[in-house]
Amino acid sequence: MKVLVAVKHTVDHNLKPFVDAATGQVDLSQARRGINPFDEISIEEAVRLKERGQVTEIVAVAIGGTDAKDSLRHAYAMGVDRALLVETDARLQPLAVAKLLKVIVEREQPGLIFMGKQAVGEDYGQTGQMLAALLGVGLGTFASGIQLGDGFVEVTREIDKGTQTISLQLPAVVTSDLRLNEPRFIKLPNLMMAKKKNIETLAASELGVDLANRFTVIKSSEPPQKPGAIQLANVNELINTLRKAEVLQ
């Protein structure tokens, strides 16, 4: 069975973003970029399924500019078999991304599609759900465990007060949560080898998909900074202060 993993080349999760006062937009020109951590977890899960002999081929697909090739090389170094870049310089919104992925799914016909539950950055957290809906297939969000069976996948999901297990007919879309696995450490020789591998490139504009933005970010701002904690000498003083402020009875 073939597995498709969607990969976003995105801003580093340790980034402290700031707003450019002139444009009122987040300035990412200097931001370090890399593979979205949730997508790395998806790749790890796919590679483990392949190592167990349950999967025959893993295809990674990224949508973005040529710099997204870095994340696809990262995917190669982790063990995917093929990489595909749907190239665009536009900052696409999740619906357009889901529509492009649908085209790729129809072309590749994977049995299982892995996506991250969200990408670091705008934190939309929508694309996997939209792809499943557009394809008319089952959806397992926030996966913390999966069991692949014959024609179905069991997904354990993190819900409010514990976990839930659902079974999805294949093909299906699964979105990875942080606790699904711990991605392997990439060895340097693997990364060197990945540099030589082929990345097939398609132009996003030629896939017959409406890529128009549906909403506009008018203005971004940083939340007001707190002045910093008032330091109290000990726990008793803390309790007295909280009682005086009527936070505690």
Partner: peptide, 10 residues
């Protein structure tokens, strides 16, 4: 956005 470091008006 950005884990609550930015608030965007849309």
């Amino acid at each position: 956005e950005y884990a609550g470091n930015i608030f965007s008006r849309i």
